[in-house]
Design a protein around this nucleic acid. Structure first.
Length: 254
DNA sequence: AAGAGGGACAACCGCTGTGGA
DNA sequence: GTCCACAGCGGTTGTCCCTCT
């Protein structure tokens, strides 16, 4: 049994894409649009697997991609979103126009992770490293895999660049300790966020419908009491998520 | 100058979710 | 309810390039 391979591997190219392959793929998608990736390589005359074509298009050839360095604003937005969503790179990418999940994932692993460590913040939990064990409720779907790193730095110093930087001093300019608190009180219009008569959980409200983290079925009557029209006064339209649209300009760094 | 080591990033692999038969 | 094809996702690997010794 088992699943058949996605393509005939013996007859497909692998590795870096050539200019000619790129041109063929672009021309084909311009003419026929995206979709049906399995049959695309053959139709476009490419000796590539459909998955490879899809990845190449999505990550590098799409015309709406924003190339170049990440801005400081993007940096901070990624950090905030990661603290909320964990390694849900596609969701994070969805909030950053012109950026791809792969790009963000690479950028996280190569730049931001180190940046947070230098600030004395655990990139997995977004808490100060020396306080990571405190009982603070934060939003994160990622596990505590980074315990190893904490254990490997028992003296409170991290990595080569920060030999002289005690972790104890967490960054003064960025508070990433994101929390959810229960509704302060019911507003006059305690309408839960509903779509088609169905109450949406927090996960769904941020666009992760049907995710395994979705709690709609678990607690559909919890009454998240969100009101997008009066979110700021209730303090419960968390990051503007009730509207289903997170505008990063509204994210304010403490 | 040359090799080692590490960083950055493109690409691949394997798994999961979804929809149709 | 089950099987299968497909798209999409996240983790991992491969490779290039730069810096250091």
């Amino acid at each position: 049994m088992g699943r058949s391979p996605c393509c005939e591997k013996a007859h497909t190219n692998k590795g870096a894409w050539t200019k000619e392959e790129d041109d063929r793929l672009i021309a084909y998608i311009r003419a026929h649009g995206e979709g049906c990736w399995r049959s695309l390589p053959k139709a476009a005359g490419l000796l590539r697997c459909g998955k490879s074509c899809r990845l190449r298009w999505i990550n590098y050839l799409r015309p709406d991609l924003k190339r170049g360095n990440f801005t400081k604003e993007e940096d901070e937005l990624i950090i905030k979103l990661h603290s909320l969503l964990g390694n849900k790179w596609s969701l994070i990418a969805g909030r950053l126009p012109g950026r791809t999940d792969n790009e963000i994932k690479n950028y996280w692993n190569t730049h931001i992770r180190r940046k947070l460590l230098n600030r004395g913040i655990d990139p997995a939990t977004h808490r100060p490293i020396n306080k990571a064990s405190q009982d603070v409720t934060t939003i994160s779907f990622s596990g505590a895999k980074e315990e190893k790193e904490k254990i490997s730095n028992p003296n409170g110093f991290i990595n080569k660049e920060e030999k002289k930087i005690p972790v104890q001093e967490s960054c003064p300019d960025l508070n990433l300790d994101l929390r959810i608190s229960p509704p302060y009180h019911q507003t006059t219009q305690p309408e839960p966020l509903k779509t088609g008569g169905r109450t949406l959980c927090f996960i769904c409200s941020i666009g992760a419908k049907n995710s395994k983290d979705c709690a709609c079925s678990i607690d559909s009557s919890a009454g998240t009491s969100n009101s997008s029209s009066n979110s700021s006064s209730s303090g419960y339209d968390f990051l503007g998520l009730n509207s289903g649209l997170l505008d990063y300009r509204s994210l304010e760094m403490k």
